[in-house]
Nucleic acid binder design. Structure first.
Lengths: 324, 324
DNA sequence: ATGTTTTACGCAAACGTTTGAGTAGTTGCG
DNA sequence: CGCAACTACTCAAACGTTTGCGTAAAACAT
């Protein structure tokens, strides 16, 4: 591979001059510039980023840590982060940390540290104490999406309020008997907050909360399916189901389809996320839109502008389609 | 940030020794090793990969270029590539190149070159001549998934045969009137090959091909929806639709749902990919399974083993669910 | 006791780039 | 004409590692 020295030799100048030309740093005359650029092109010169970053100490690298792509909202976020990064000449280092795998998360952090990333964007990653301390000790700024992480900036919707509004929306649409599925009360962030929002909305509407109507689970299709089978086979089935994700909502839809339950006539289904699947299932899901693209974009902006400490709450909307 | 020199100073040895200890290179005694490791830990030492790679000339970096994540099969591939990479201590540099954006693809290649990746995995990326030449001139090995790229290794299914088998499967299931949707005859790879497979199967079954039954489009939900509306509103609607992707199949399902067409009683739908959506739509899609996870894994293996020139054809299966 | 091998380091160069400081040669100004 | 200010460079150090070579000291063999 051609280096700056090869170019220098051919052009009859020193590497310094070549470097200045290639970086448009000024301090050379037009003829030299043209000559150097022509030789660089003919040699297929590619700057060695390792050398460059070593001396320059800036990496133009943003680390992105996601749990895994199955979570359905990872894709749009990665897309927008990548696009924003591209527009700013920044590169993306991607790593998966799995679901609750401190060891792998640690590996991810080491990776990012070794690459001297200017910042990390984590998507729905829960930090355990060890890794949080480790991160803090390394002084790498972090922007967390979807969940908040102590001492670091975050970008998320107001989960309590969103669950409140979703529940209220169902109630006002005539569904008093509304269940909440796919929430994990052990998850202090999303799960618990959405349960709180649901409870608050029921209380404010003076509807007693039936605890059987809160069905625990993760955000998966299966969780939705199982919850539906438990709820809808019971003696007192709900008239509406509020799922904690679109995938879970799709699970509900699937159960309903199998048992010939008409949506929304016999059962209303409200999703959460407005992920890709929300638009393509039948009937199309009424859901709570999370502005993933905007969140990814904002995360990159924050890292560029070094705004690491504020928490941003972004707006969601209830997106009406066919399922309620 | 602490460097190897800081450790050396504290430990009373030279950087060489520290380096050897940290790399488990041998040539030090146990006491020194323990001392160095303890100091390194206490200083939160992180190897500067830039310096390391600069001298070592190996990057442990694999570049991944995808068009965009919306293509629904990007996610499982990225997941498996990332997992395989993780198990081999390799990092992933991710870049999007958009759909037909030579300029951005060029940018991606520059990025990869600058980072001195050991290899590039491209997912469903079509190389124009300029970029192909550019890639070749840079001598970076490439493994292409889903499409084949001249002079470089690829991993894909046999699209002609898969479309043939899918069509044959529909015919043998009793559907003589089978349409093919979501294919682009301008796409010499996937599109054209699947059309060929479809035609071959029809011919072999002695069924005349009705050209109206081949509806052009991309792989999107909308393409499937539009194709369905064109086909099913016609005077001679097909009894089965073979979609070129699960997303397109979901579009067909959606149209059918809107017009109260029963699946599979009145219309059979066969998808393609077995992406995440295939399992969660209602009814669940019978589809052609592409082993994305295996493909990603294999791609990483090939790069590690430096097998850049073979084309691998991986196996698909027809996965029977509810839609046919 | 002498010679040989091994161990456990140190030394210094190298990787490719950037950048502050230095310097010929040219231009401008009064 | 003399001095300052530029221009267009060159020089050399620096970034943090790795690694081949060198070498004292220790261990072993004869």
């Amino acid at each position: 591979m051609a280096t700056i020295k090869d170019i220098a030799k051919q052009a009859g100048v020193t590497p310094s001059t070549v470097s200045r030309v290639l970086n448009h740093a000024g301090g050379y005359n037009e003829a030299t510039k043209i000559k150097v650029e022509k030789i660089a092109a003919s040699l297929h010169y590619q700057k060695n980023e390792y050398a460059s970053n070593l001396v320059g100490k800036k990496s133009n690298l943003i680390g992105v840590i996601i749990t895994d792509s199955k979570s359905s909202f990872a894709s749009p976020i990665i897309d927008s982060v990548e696009d924003s990064a591209y527009q700013n000449g920044i590169r993306i280092l991607l790593a998966h940390c799995g679901q609750n795998d401190p060891q792998r998360l640690r590996f991810c952090l080491d990776l990012m540290a070794g690459q001297k990333v200017t910042g990390i964007i984590s998507v729905a990653v829960q930090f355990d104490n060890d890794n949080l301390n480790y991160l803090n000790s390394m002084q790498i700024p972090l922007i967390s999406l979807n969940v908040s992480v102590p001492d670091h900036g975050s970008i998320k919707i107001d989960d309590v309020q969103a669950a409140y509004d979703g529940t209220k929306f169902l109630i006002e649409s005539g569904y008093q008997k509304t269940a909440l599925v796919g929430v994990d009360s052990n998850d202090p962030q999303t799960g618990l907050q959405r349960i709180t929002g649901y409870r608050n909305a029921m209380n404010d509407a003076n509807i007693p909360v039936n605890n059987d109507y809160i069905v625990e689970g993760d955000f998966s299709f299966d969780a939705g399916f199982k919850a539906a089978s438990k709820l809808l086979a019971s003696s007192n089935p709900p008239r509406a189901i509020f799922a904690a994700s679109d995938d879970a909502a799709a699970g509900v839809l699937s159960y309903a389809y199998d048992h010939n339950i008409k949506i929304p006539a016999e059962l209303a289904v409200l999703g959460f996320d407005n992920s890709h699947v929300a638009q393509i299932v039948t009937p199309a899901l009424t859901t709570i839109n999370q502005p993933f693209a905007k969140m990814g974009q904002l995360a990159v902006q924050k890292i560029i502008n070094k705004e690491f400490n504020e928490d941003s709450i972004v707006k969601y909307q209830i997106l009406k389609r066919q399922s309620v």
